[in-house]
Amino acid sequence: MRVSVHFYSYFKELTGCAETAETLPEGSTINDLLKLLIARFPKLGAMQNSTLIAVGVEYQGRSYVLKEGEEVSLFPPVQGG
């Protein structure tokens, strides 16, 4: 199963890219994806407690089971206004 991953705000600087993709086994969760991403981009590790995660345009928790082709977005706490 392949999912695309998008980074926003200073997460782009921490990872050096705006988007990437990961291949995971069927049934993998967001938590599984996070582990892979932190292994690839260790600077994300320090931010993991405050990282917000969306699938499509909805927030999702770490136990969300990913599906083929989904777009996952990772970003720091929002700061509009």
Partner: peptide, 11 residues
């Protein structure tokens, strides 16, 4: 609520 959930960031 906007400052809590709407994905806008400032630098």
């Amino acid at each position: 609520e906007m400052k809590r959930v709407v994905p806008i960031w400032k630098k």
